[in-house]
């Protein structure tokens, strides 16, 4: 008999099984509560630390939110006035353009150098592990320390970079790294590339480790080594990692603030103003929290677009 029963149960069509469970069990069964408990912490966390700030930021951008608000709690509703102010500002278009150039330049530089270094460190050689861990240094250094150091390196008159270039005969007149509006953005991008390399190397190096060695061995037998091996084996296998690195890189770079504040504070003559810097200065220098929130909402919107691109790319990868 027990045998029979088991066979019977197993022979019931699988489709009806879930429905049976649902109707048979009460709504607040132990199982459902347990399921809910798995979701609740994540949901509470998301609502508290992502939902609330985003909603608050949006409402703040529609209010006249100033120093007074902190004491009186009154923030008069002003509709889209803050957005009109920031879009009408002379600094909005340059800041948007600088944000785009800064992001593109930084990502391109970080990624190419990161990929080259990761490929290089894939080979084992004496001290390779030690050198690879040294690469993480910019990551471990507080950004404010890093930018202060770079500020002295890039000093026009006595900075070590200009002195070295002059000594080597590469340049004759010192380059005004941080003091010319034409050069400052490039200099800031340069420093941000330095900051971003460890992240790129680490992730890409991890991705390279996942590519089976046999592929290279088989390809080598067919005569594909060096550049050919990279193009036909490394690059296609690395694609999912590359998409993660690029999209996260974009989102991280869009919001970079401390490096620019430390190096130029948005100057010279507003040449390194980005949306993040504008948002910071409006909120915490001018105490116009409404306009500051409006700037950061624009920034959030741009990040969101890239986040969606990332999610879609990922979903496609999973489907494949």
């Amino acid at each position: 008999m027990p045998n029979m029963q088991r066979i019977n149960r197993e022979s019931t069509p699988p489709v009806s099984a879930p429905r049976n469970t649902l109707s048979a069990r009460p709504r607040f069964s132990r199982e459902n509560v347990t399921k809910a408990l798995f979701v609740v912490p994540a949901a509470v966390f998301t609502v508290l630390f992502f939902g609330y700030p985003v909603v608050k930021n949006i409402t703040m951008s529609l209010q006249d939110y100033t120093t007074k608000t902190f004491f009186t709690g009154e923030a008069p509703w002003v509709g889209i006035k803050n957005y009109a102010t920031i879009f009408g500002s002379n600094l909005f278009t340059p800041a948007l353009l600088n944000t785009a150039l800064f992001t593109l330049g930084s990502i391109a530089g970080q990624f190419v150098i990161g990929l080259a270094l990761a490929t290089f460190f894939k080979r084992r050689f004496p001290l390779s592990n030690f050198l690879r861990s040294m690469l993480l240094l910019p990551w471990l250094l507080p950004l404010i320390v890093g930018s202060a150091t770079w500020r002295s390196i890039l000093d026009q008159d006595s900075g070590i970079l200009n002195r070295s270039l002059e000594g080597l005969g590469v340049i004759h007149d010192p380059i005004p790294w941080l003091t010319s509006p034409a050069v400052a953005l490039s200099a800031v991008i340069l420093v941000n590339i330095w900051v971003g390399i460890p992240f790129n190397v680490t992730i890409i190096y991890g991705g390279l480790q996942d590519i089976p060695e046999e592929l290279y061995e088989a390809a080598a037998l067919d005569g594909a080594t060096g550049w050919k091996a990279f193009r036909n084996i490394t690059w296609p296998n690395l694609r999912p990692v590359v998409s993660v690195v690029l999209v996260l890189g974009v989102v991280y770079t869009l919001k970079v603030l401390d490096i620019i504040l430390g190096l130029t504070n948005g100057g010279p003559a507003n040449a390194t103003q980005t949306l993040a810097v504008r948002s910071y200065q409006e909120s915490f220098i001018n105490f116009q929290f409404g306009s500051g929130a409006a700037y950061s909402n624009v920034l959030i919107l741009i990040s969101l677009i890239f986040a969606i691109i990332y999610l879609r790319a990922n979903r496609r990868a999973v489907d494949e």
């Binding site: 000093d155 008159d157 005004p176 941080l178 003091t179 100057g267 010279p268 003559a269």
Partner: peptide, 12 residues
């Protein structure tokens, strides 16, 4: 600044 008596770096 233009006469060179003050460094151009003063803006930073």
């Amino acid at each position: 600044v233009n006469s060179g008596s003050v460094s151009k770096s003063v803006i930073n």
